[in-house]
C-alpha cells in the first residue's frame, strides 16, 4: 500500500502510523456527558468499504493525514491534512474553564 503524503509524495505504508477512525468527535473538554465521552473513546465506525481514517507520516514529516480508504480493497481515494479535514476540532475558546 502506498500513501501519497501531501508533503513527501507517495511513500510505503510502513512509514505511516495508523491513528484509527477519523469520524469520531471529541466532546467539549469541559463536557460531562459521559455517553458522548464513552462513544468518543470506545466506539468506532468500522465499515467494510470506504472509511475515513487518520494516519500519521511517522517515518517522515510526522504530519497527520485524513485518508479516505476502502477497507475491502485498500484503495486510497483521498489524502489531505488532518488538521484541515480531520476530526472536528476544538478551539481554545471552548476548551473550558481555566485556572
Amino acid at each position: 500500500m502506498l500513501i501519497t503524503c501531501p508533503y513527501c509524495g507517495p511513500r510505503d505504508v510502513s512509514e505511516f502510523a495508523y491513528q484509527g477512525d477519523g469520524n469520531r468527535t471529541r466532546p467539549d473538554p469541559a463536557s460531562t456527558d459521559s455517553e458522548a465521552w464513552n462513544a468518543y473513546v470506545y466506539d468506532r465506525l468500522n465499515p467494510a468499504g470506504i472509511h475515513n481514517e487518520i494516519w500519521q507520516h511517522a517515518g517522515g514529516c510526522r504530519v497527520h493525514l485524513a485518508v479516505v480508504r476502502d477497507t475491502l480493497t485498500h484503495e486510497i481515494s483521498s489524502v489531505r491534512f488532518a488538521r484541515e479535514h480531520g476530526t472536528p476540532t476544538h478551539s481554545r475558546r471552548n476548551h473550558g474553564a481555566k485556572a
Binding site: 510505503d12 510502513s14 502510523a17 468500522n46 481514517e53 477497507t71 475491502l72 485498500h74
Partner: peptide, 13 residues
C-alpha cells in the same frame, strides 16, 4: 498489519 481491513490480504512490511 495495523489498519482496518476486511480484505484477508496482508502487506509486505
Amino acid at each position: 498489519d495495523g489498519y482496518n481491513s476486511y480484505a484477508q490480504r496482508g502487506s509486505l512490511p
